[in-house]
Amino acid sequence: MSANTPSRLEKVLANGHFAVTTECGPPRGSDLGVITQKAEYVKNHVDAINVTDNQTSVTRLCSLSCCIHLKQLGLEPILQMVTRDRNRIALQSDILGAAAFDIHNILCLSGDHQSFGDHAQGQNVHDLDSMQLIQTARHMRDEGAFLGGDAIQRPPQMFVGAAANPFADPFEIRVPRLAKKVKAGAEFIQTQCIYNLDKFEEWMKGIRDRGLHEEVAILAGLTPFKSAGMARFMKNKVPGMDVPDHVVKRMADQPKEKQPEEGLKICTESMQRLKEIEGVSGFHIMAIEWEQKVPELVEGAGLHPRPEI
């Protein structure tokens, strides 16, 4: 794999290193200090930082402004964009907005349904879906043109990513679905949080059987549990999440004060096992409101220091 864009993340992968990304959720207000603080925790331990786009449909500070802020702090942002809230005009406009500040990574998503959020009565857009947003970002970059056909002055140079959930149903479609995202133009994939490693390995085998791991960099998604309650919530309440009973039990068997430590331990062990799977190119650590623990996880998995690019 050779790099097509100035993306640092792409270069780390192209040079054959495991990549490490993390994410931070913007605040429910206009204080960028929250982003500065989260960035401070992780800046020496990751290659790039995703900024979520109104995740779970709860209205927040926009991903784009937080990405610009990270860029101005000298860090590498990954702009998350969902197709729920903007039509093709706004999506392309915001991609240019990011490109204007030399943001070189985008993650294309459809987004959680608005009924989960704070404006359940709102309309959803879905003029495009996530696959079509991948195609759009690639088209703008590779053809230097808008979907409508007109040329773009100074086109975006973005490394284009997508999400994959190996655990959602129907399972038999999960490998073909990834193939479809690759066909659409996805260059990196960040997966849903992995707790069921056996099932993830089965999915990866399907990926390797089709040679997809040669075409796309797969970053394994991880979220450490803070408590047994969180493990139960993820298991029972979060759609498309697969948390095996033995993992919940392992958390619950610990006294409350030791549960955070156990959660981090499970996460580190998972990363060590995932590193051995052929086709896993890196990790995407989603330490939800626990960003200060990212360095410990990265070090625990033997992924520190990050390569100089």
């Binding site: 879906d129 996530s130 959602a168 759609p239 498309g240």
Partner: peptide, 10 residues
């Protein structure tokens, strides 16, 4: 979604 399903299909 014209190219579904999303990750929330359970």
């Amino acid at each position: 979604l014209l190219n579904g399903p999303c990750g929330g299909s359970t």
